[in-house]
Amino acid sequence: MTAVRDFKTEVPGHTDTYRLIYRKSFSQIIATVVTLVLLVGILASIVGNENFKWSIVGEYFTAAQITDGIMLTLQLTGICMVIGTALGILLALMRISGNRLLSRVAYVYIWFFRATPLLVQLIFWFNISALYPVFAFGIPGVGEMWSINTNAFITPMFAAILCLSLNEAAYMAEVIRGGFLGVGNGQSEAAKALGMNGFQVQRIILPQATRIIVPPTANQLITLLKNTSLVSIVGIADLLHSAQLIYSSNYQTIPLLIVAGIWYLIITSVLSVVQIYLEKHFSKGTRGSTPAKRIKRRRPSGTTSLGRA
């Protein structure tokens, strides 16, 4: 079995067309056939299995409770991403600063939030009132100036935003720090040699670092979107919790989980497409951003690997 593709030479003065022939081995053919058979079998088992109850999936796919959960999930993702990115920038600047104390504090923060499970963090912040029943602010010798009951302050929504934002900040700090380090010291040294101050130096480095920061940031956004499903354990009516509320009343667990899963797939796919366009935008003008033109030298007739078309 062979695959044929034509291409033209780009060498000035030559307009010959060549045919490149790819030969597939017998093992590749067997692997392709086996894979296709498995895919067809899996698809047939999913579509033909009545236990999936696709009619119920279609019935609740655009239900008001589900769409409200989607909106809350998107709002939670956006809020936490903005706060986490802002804190991540601050932590990244602390990590690369010359101040050893600030660098170590940022390192410990990043280490702690990356080393502990997100679910544990969420439960901890939701039950913080067990440690601090009252948040109070005062000045020694003057007395208490402000106080608030922790249970009234740390609502489930606030605990979720606080937990997800603080956790996201740790990961974004490393992403942003990697972007700054990826530019290289030569850029900042050259800017300082021209007499630029710190703010002007960052204006030189930031556009270059953005190209490195954008792809992993988009991945973090997708990860954060999926991590919001954990807030269902504290009673927040996100997408997953909305599906749980429905199947707790009609006992259609699998169909409602399929509804939630499909919506997560749709939102993640949209974000992935946006990520592709952002990567193309920020890679303009960089080396390797556009595919190199294929240049083939003229080959004499009668060769075995290339046949004259």
Rank of each mutant, 00 (worst) to 15 (best):
V175E: 06
Y132L: 14
A169L: 13
L131F: 11
G178L: 08
N167S: 14
L166H: 03
V183I: 03
I128E: 00
Y171L: 01
E174N: 00
C163Y: 01
A190F: 02
V134R: 11
V134M: 09
L162C: 06
W111L: 02
L194I: 03
E144D: 06
L164E: 03
F113V: 05
Q187S: 06
R104V: 13
I204R: 13
V120H: 01
L131I: 15
S147P: 09
A159G: 12
P133L: 07
A193E: 03
V120D: 04
T116L: 15
M157T: 13
N185T: 15
G179R: 09
Y132Q: 12
A190D: 09
L122D: 02
I123T: 12
I161R: 08
P133H: 04
I123E: 02
F124A: 07
L166I: 11
T116I: 15
I128M: 01
W125Y: 13
T150L: 04
R177Q: 09
P156Y: 05
L164A: 07
Y132P: 06
V134L: 11
A191N: 01
G138V: 04
E189M: 05
F158A: 07
C163R: 06
L118V: 08
Y107V: 10
L164P: 00
N149G: 10
L162T: 07
N167D: 10
G179T: 02
G143W: 06
